[in-house]
Every structure is written in structure tokens, then in C-alpha cells.
Amino acid sequence: MSATEPVTEPIIRMERVTKNFGTLQALREISLHVHPGEKVVIIGPSGSGKSTLLRSINRLERIDSGHIFVDGQDITDIRNDINKIRMEVGMVFQSFNLFPHKTALQNLTLAPMKLRKIPRAEAEANGLRLLRKVGIEDKASVYPSRLSGGQQQRVAIARALAMNPKIMLFDEPTSALDPEMIGEVLDVMVTLAREGMTMVVVTHEMGFAREVADRVVFMDQGEILEDRPPQVLFQQPSHPRTQKFLSQIL
């Protein structure tokens, strides 16, 4: 392996990844490449393994066999420091998971200060800039319990961005939100995509997939059945199960 790799090298490379929960095969020999700057949206029926796939990328879910390379490092190799790798991979959860004992701004500054050793003043300035970016600078000193779902999720996105990651993972970021709040979160994600962030998004928001995705991956029963640009996948789904899923959801 050469020390300097070409830019076109995939930043996420999953090779024949398998994951079982007891007798259930959550992931069956999944292979997936994501290049820097790409936006990949993963869709599929519930229980298809799409969340498991996403969570395996930063090893929140340990895989049984196969390899996952993130930014050139094999995360299944225990000699690689997973905590260092995770600092480069931001994650946004369905249930926000903000730290309730910290204010919005403190949620953003905790990890950069403790892990990247950034001085408080700098971390706070950066945190405020991110809160402004997600449109809730005025809530900086408010605790999460006083924020709406949409506001909480925007803080959660900003919290992940505060570590200045190379990749952002979104695990059904709008599924726990009231309908009127979905738009404000998607707007933030669209902005992020336009800025060139590498994104892997599990979602049921087909509008978002159409607008933002470079590729849409359809999963069912632990397998990737289709991996195409959104125009192609939505217009002419080739697999019957994709057709069935799209007809149910659209």
C-alpha cells in the first residue's frame, strides 16, 4: 500500500460484511463504497438492516465477518483506535440523544474540548457559529428539555459537526419528529450536503433522497438489492421488491 492514496479512493469501504442477531441475518455479505463528498441515502422496509449497516460504519454495531475501512483504516482491526476513527465520523440518531445535563452550547463544546483539546473560548465560538448555522443561536444556553424535537435534532447535528468530522451518518433523523418539524431538520441536512459533506443517510424521506442523493441504496432482508442514482431508482426500479416498497411508500 502506498502512503499517499489518490483522492478517488473510497472513504468508506465495506467488504462482504455479515452481521447476525441470533438466528436473524441482519447483514448478508454487504459490500458498499462511498467516495469523499458523496451523499448516499439508504432506504428499505423496517428490519431490512439499513440501521445496522449505518451503525456498523462507526462500530456501534460489531460485525461478524467482513471488513469495513473508514478513511483507509480497518475498523474491524482492534489495533486501530476506534475512538480516533469515531472522531472523524459524526452520527445523528433518531432519538437525538442530546446530553440533558448540558446546555445546547455545552453539548457542542464537550467533545471538542475534551477530545480535541480545543480551548474553551475557541470551542464556544465555533459552537455558536454552528448553532447559528442550524438556526438556533438564541437557544445556546437552553437545556435540551426546553427545546422542541426539531430544535433538539438540529442541535444534535451541530454537536456532531463540532468535531469537524469527515463523514456524517444519519440514522432516521426525522422519524421521531412531528410532521411540522421535519422540514427544518431536512433544510439543515440539505445545506450540509451542498457544502460537500460526505453523508450516509438512512431515511424514509424520499423527497430528500431525490433532491440530495448521488446514489440511493435499496435494502431488504439484509441485502443491498439496488444501488443507483435517485432518478433511475425512483423512475425504473429494476427489482420487484424495490417496486413493491416504492409503491407502498410513495
Binding site: 462507526n58 456501534l60 452520527m91 440518531f93 475534551k114
Partner: peptide
């Protein structure tokens, strides 16, 4: 909630 641990770990703690 176990999501708290996951959130912390996902940040790199």
C-alpha cells in the same frame, strides 16, 4: 438511556 452512551461513544469518547 443507552442512547446516551452511544452518543458519547460516537463522538469519540
Amino acid at each position: 438511556d443507552k442512547g446516551q452512551m452511544e452518543a458519547a461513544r460516537s463522538l469519540g469518547f
